[in-house]
């Protein structure tokens, strides 16, 4: 599956648009990571737990979006965008959305 945040794919033409697809997830890290982050906030530096949280959330959201596109019979998702929202302390929602399409290599 071709997943891009551009409207076109070089060397490919869009054969059919399948409509919007999206995937979202709300995730949190266990309390230990939150406590560790609290200490980190005194000394500064990267909050690895929260970086990980974002990476995991984004992968999950993208894979759910890809599953939707696959179910529609698409082989590409174009113009992918991310949206986030605050849920509560130590958690975040990440949503990925894009346009599912069938593309084929230009002759």
């Amino acid at each position: 599956m071709i997943v891009v945040n551009t409207e076109t794919v070089p060397g490919c033409r869009i054969v059919e648009l399948k409509g919007m697809v999206q995937g979202n997830t709300v995730r949190a890290k266990h309390a230990g990571r939150d406590i560790a982050a609290g200490f980190k906030n005194l000394i500064g530096g990267e909050l690895k737990g929260y970086t990980e949280l974002l990476t995991e959330s984004r992968r999950e959201a993208v894979s759910r979006m890809m599953a939707q596109a696959e179910a529609l019979g698409a082989n590409a998702i174009l113009n992918v965008r991310f949206s986030t929202s605050a849920v509560t302390a130590g958690a975040s929602e990440i949503m990925a959305y894009g346009t599912a399409a069938i593309v084929e290599a230009e002759a």
């Binding site: 071709i2 945040n5 551009t6 906030n41 000394i43 500064g44 530096g45 909050l47 970086t51």
Partner: peptide, 20 residues
Amino acid sequence: AAGGPPPELVCGEAAIASDG
């Protein structure tokens, strides 16, 4: 480049803490 591998979505993220 014409041809070549299909493009791909790439991401990066970082959470950096303030200090006391």
